[in-house]
């Protein structure tokens, strides 16, 4: 009676064993990568908007401050999306016959709000508060990126919890003077020294308890 298994079966068995392990590890790696990819976080993906509003044009070219439209950024949990009336402060005279701005004028006439697509949307179990971050010296650009260089709005960072924790663990690496909150181009000459000083001055704490954000 001949042998059932040939000598090469030994190799096949090893390949199968290690292959299974390899396959399992690669699957985990793919899942983790997918979860952190732009596909999951929607980072750097431009959303379609009813009007192609350009932050680049309004802030970089026109020099309008973030605060002009996002008026509640300093005092409220929500930075605020401006009412159509704010657009019309200027656009009643400027580009007031542009077809591109017709949805803005239509909204102003009817009182129906423009339905912007929200770009920065945290999960509902995160209770983020805009005002405290500004009060403690976190600049707009730190979380929103170079909005003044974005012709169409996109999310600059992942907004995942590991990203939040980078700063919550070591705020001294990211905070800036309150006078430079809206400055998109500001960079610290010596963040280590300045950060330590600001943490002292603004009483900035490393908030790491779960219930700080999840209530």
């Amino acid at each position: 009676m001949s042998q059932i298994f040939k000598p090469s079966t030994n190799t096949l068995a090893r390949v199968t064993l290690f292959g299974a392990l390899f396959f399992a590890l690669v699957s985990v790696w793919i899942l983790v990568s997918l979860n952190r990819s732009a596909y999951a976080t929607r980072q750097t993906i431009v959303r379609m908007q009813p009007v192609p509003f350009s932050h680049d044009h309004h802030t970089e070219a026109m020099g309008i401050s973030c605060l002009y439209c996002h008026t509640s950024a300093e005092d409220s949990a929500f930075a605020g999306v401006p009412p159509t009336a704010t657009c019309m402060n200027c656009h009643k005279l400027i580009w007031n016959d542009s077809p591109m701005l017709e949805p803005v004028r239509a909204s102003f006439r009817s009182g129906e709000p423009i339905q912007w697509a929200r770009v920065h949307d945290l999960p509902d179990f995160v209770y983020f508060n805009h005002s405290i971050h500004i009060a403690k010296g976190v600049g707009c650009v730190t979380c929103h990126g170079r909005v003044d260089k974005m012709p169409l709005m996109k999310q600059a960072v992942s907004l995942q919890m590991e990203w939040c924790l980078e700063c919550h663990r070591a705020p001294q690496d990211f905070v800036r003077p309150r006078s430079e909150i809206y400055n998109m181009e500001w960079e610290a000459e010596d963040q280590a020294a300045l950060g330590a000083k600001l943490v002292e001055q603004y009483d900035i704490q490393s908030m790491m308890s779960c219930s700080v954000c999840h209530r």
Binding site: F78, Q115, P123, D124, F125
Partner: peptide
Amino acid sequence: DMHDQPRYEPLEA
């Protein structure tokens, strides 16, 4: 369900 809970965020539709 936990990401989009049945409550309104500011200015939500």
